[in-house]
Design a protein around this nucleic acid. Structure first.
Length: 829
DNA sequence: AGCACGCCGACT
DNA sequence: GTCGGCGTGCTC
């Protein structure tokens, strides 16, 4: 959608400004940290209220801004008028603004961009410069004095007007503004500004209703009479519905309307994202444990901010507890926000909320089209929905007030947004609950270390569910020690005889098997082939990563390095092997092993299209697949009663992952996987292949005992000063030129050391690790470096990083080098 | 981000 | 001498 705007008289001189004119502050949707003051022209004053988008002149451009409220700075150098108000009703409530501000400060991100990421995508308008060739330009093409570049630009523009980006693409080289200005001055080209941006608008549909008196019916044709009868007996119908019912044509309706026999009207509708209707369900009987948990939590609703960690083993019925709590909250007139992990397709939790609460539920997840997402957003903002459920971005749902925030599977890594505004929706859930004085419930069978630590220090309350709803025992986990079979070759290296046998038995019984592998092909890490020990960093106790160019194993936290040719530090063996198997290899092996079985694979490579996931899940459900190979993608959010066996090819892939959270992730993954098997009436079985059967992560996962895991892991974190005993910030430095990027990273590191020298060492001391080349040293032609900053004192850390960013902007190459700040990083690759 | 202004090298 | 590259600063 394009339209032209008049860009005149936008600026007014200070002395002309009416002192009574309304002044507002606006955050622009650009990477700019300041907030700007604009005046509102009289005709827009009634519409200008916080939470709406506005179109504002900004420099020489016109951009989208967000109206934040009355102006705060009183004497800016120049004040311009708002050009337009883009929304009839606010996109977000005013009460969310402090929350947005908090996020901007905590994650060190421009406020306007925080709001842009929060809102449904596709709402921003910006203008672009459009170049059009003039008559003088056409004639100039014949001039001999024409420069080569001018000739190319002109001949490109003869094809039609273009913006600068299009132009650069067609001619394949950069075009400078200086050149364009020169051409404009000679009147060869014209430069116009055009507003652009995918406009999403409310959708409306036309309805028909009877009008006129009963009497006219006598003289009508049979068809017209029929239409009036239908409308009279069935009530107003939408035109599509009427067409389906009576076979009307649009032309006929128009004629009838002209004749006053029917009347039509527009009504806004919400695009329906709910494909299959979901049957309403009736609440099941609660177990004693569930009832106790609800009894403990329900009184907390509406009594101010509180966080409860709901720890319940897999299959213990956490969802039912959420549903009852939501119901109680709604009964008391409170709004409810539910976060679920991002998974392939729709989650079970989401289905159950919709089944229980029907129309009052709005959903926000990645499976929706832009229009649907916008409609769902408006239903929340407009008060039509009282429950919002969705993946991480749902934390921004535009409720004015919220009484209950639920985070399902709070340990899940998908709550962390990578890139751009790198927020953690689980953490934001607690922050938002505090802002609203709401109750936050974080639920998981395998709580994150962070959250359980908050329980132990008294920040969070707890509620426990220790038994499964159906009284089924947890599936038995059998570990298979991979170090005993290191001499095996070929298939049996990955699929041990024990796993093969178990799969064979499962297939014989007509059941389905799931084979897991957390494939991270690129993360090949060194393991001793003799003793099974991972090669670790002396300083960080983190697996080292192979850097091919340097032919060395490196720690990507601190930069510690060991020659790739060195011996195993614990047993001196020379046989160091790089572990790195992929799902594809496993699939191949299984097909060879079980030629008669139907094997399918599900990972990010095979599931790029939405339709393929649906098909695969349907095939699985209808038992058209015997063995499914995949990454965690398969495990999350789907229940398959036919699956009785789960095989984990190599648990060490996550265990030895070069990350301080690898033990935690392994425990969580394995315990969740174990919970997958045997959801039907048959008990489940898990075969877990590992080089480290005695590792506490694996032993605790076998018992589904997160407390025993926590007790061991927390000591390790404390000793090395990792979260939750410190906060971390990853400073990611990237650029196209390898030398400049390295130099820039070095300069920032140098600055860090200077700042450290000045600040001295106190209890809240700051540690700097790096700069080091990122393990994935080049992505999309950008060279990547990182600096990790760590401190037990969050405020000190914040200030430190702030100063570091200022230093970056002062450095000579600041324009070509990108510095991204990741507060509380999750993945350090 | 995107646009303008200003400072330097290589060409008529 | 100027044309046209790129580094720097600003946007209410």
């Amino acid at each position: 959608m394009k339209f032209k705007i008049k860009n005149d008289t936008a600026a007014v001189k200070e002395d002309q400004v009416d002192p009574h004119r309304q002044m507002v502050s606006v955050a622009v949707a650009l990477p700019v940290h300041d907030i700007f003051t604009y005046s509102v022209p009289d005709h827009l004053i009634p519409q200008a209220c916080p939470g709406k988008r506005v179109l504002v002149p900004f420099g020489r451009r016109t951009v989208t801004g967000y109206l934040m409220g009355p102006a705060t700075t009183m004497d800016p150098p120049e004040i311009k008028h708002i050009l337009d108000v883009l929304d009839a009703t606010p996109l977000f409530p005013e009460t969310l603004i402090p929350f947005f501000r908090w996020i901007a400060a905590y994650y060190m991100h421009p406020l306007g961009q925080v709001i842009s990421t929060a809102l449904p995508a596709g709402l921003n308008l910006t203008d672009v410069a459009i170049l059009t060739i003039g008559d003088a330009g056409r004639q100039a093409m014949r001039l001999p004095s024409l420069s080569p570049l001018e000739a190319i630009v002109l001949s490109a523009l003869v094809q039609g007007p273009a913006d600068i980006k299009q132009l650069q693409k067609t001619i394949g080289q950069p075009v400078s503004w200086a050149l364009i200005h020169a051409m404009r001055q000679r009147e060869w080209v014209r430069v116009d500004r055009q507003i652009r941006g995918r406009q999403i608008r409310p959708k409306s549909i036309r309805w028909a209703t009877v009008s006129g008196t009963e009497a006219i019916s006598d003289r009508l044709s049979r068809q017209r009479q029929r239409i009036r009868d239908i409308l009279r007996t069935e009530g107003d119908l939408s035109l599509p519905a009427l067409k389906a019912r009576a076979g009307t044509t649009p032309a006929l309706i128009r004629e009838m309307e002209k004749a006053g026999q029917v009347r039509t009207y527009e009504q806004t509708i919400y695009r329906d994202p709910f494909g299959d209707p979901i049957e309403p369900d009736s609440p099941p009987r609660l177990t004693t444990e569930q009832a106790a948990a609800i009894k403990a939590m329900a009184p907390l609703l509406g009594r101010g901010f509180k966080t409860v960690l709901l720890a319940g083993v897999t299959g213990s019925g956490k969802t039912e507890v959420y549903l009852r709590m939501a119901e109680t909250a709604l009964d008391r007139g409170l709004r409810v926000l539910v976060l679920v992990p991002e998974i392939a397709l729709i989650s079970q939790t989401e289905r159950r909320f919709r089944a229980r609460f029907g129309e009052t539920v709005a959903v926000l997840h990645s499976g929706l089209s832009r229009g649907e997402r916008y409609d769902q957003w408006r239903r929340i903002a407009g008060g039509k929905a009282t429950i919002a459920i969705g993946a991480r971005s749902c934390i921004f749902a535009p409720f004015g007030e919220v009484g209950l925030i639920i985070v399902d599977e709070e340990h899940d890594a998908s709550y962390k947004q990578e890139g751009g505004l790198s927020y953690n929706a689980r953490d934001l859930a607690v922050v938002r609950a505090r802002h609203h004085g709401a109750l936050a419930i974080l639920g998981s069978a395998t709580p994150s270390l962070q959250s359980w630590h908050n329980v132990t220090v008294g920040k969070y309350e707890t509620a426990m569910l220790s038994r499964r709803v159906n009284r089924q025992p947890l599936p038995a986990i059998q570990t298979v020690d991979l170090s005993h079979i290191r001499d095996e070759r070929g298939i049996h290296r990955y699929i041990t005889p024990q796993l093969q046998q178990a799969i064979g038995k499962t297939l014989d019984e007509g059941d389905q098997a799931l084979v897991f592998l957390n494939r991270r092909g690129f993360a090949a890490f060194p393991v001793c082939a003799d003793c099974g020990q991972a090669i670790r960093c002396n300083n960080c106790d983190i697996s080292l990563t192979l850097h091919k160019r340097a032919n060395a194993f490196r720690c990507h936290y601190c930069g510690f390095s060991r020659a790739a040719a060195s011996n195993c530090p614990s047993c001196s063996s020379e046989k160091i092997r790089l572990l790195g198997v992929g799902t594809e290899k496993i699939e191949e092996a299984l097909v060879q092993m079980f030629p008669q079985a139907r094997v399918a694979r599900m990972d990010r490579d095979t599931m790029s299209r939405k339709g393929s996931i649906v098909r695969l899940l349907k095939d699985l459900k209808h038992r058209r697949i015997d063995i499914l190979v995949g990454t965690q993608m398969v495990a999350k959010g789907h229940d398959f009663p036919g699956i009785t066996l789960v095989g984990v090819v190599c648990a060490d892939l996550t265990l030895n992952f070069p990350d301080f959270r690898s033990g935690e992730r392994t425990f969580q993954l394995l315990a969740q996987v174990a919970g997958r098997a045997g959801r039907g009436d048959k008990p489940g079985k898990v075969i877990l292949q590992t080089f480290n059967p005695d590792h506490y992560s694996i032993v605790s996962a076998k018992e589904q005992d997160f407390k025993s895991f926590f007790n061991q892991e927390i000591g390790f974190r404390k000793a090395l000063g990792y979260p939750p005993f410190s906060r971390m910030v990853a400073v990611r430095i990237s650029g196209k030129n390898p030398k400049r990027t390295a130099g820039h990273a070095g300069a920032l590191g140098e600055h860090c050391r200077e700042m450290l020298a000045r600040s001295g060492s106190g209890p809240g001391r700051i540690q700097v690790m790096g700069p080091i080349e990122a393990p994935l040293s080049r992505i999309a032609n950008r060279y990547r470096w990182q600096i990790l900053v760590k401190s037990p004192d969050p405020n000190g850390l914040h200030h430190f990083v702030h100063r570091l960013v200022r230093c970056h902007h002062g450095l000579p190459d600041a324009r070509q080098i990108k510095v991204a700040i990741d507060v509380d990083p999750f993945f350090l690759m």
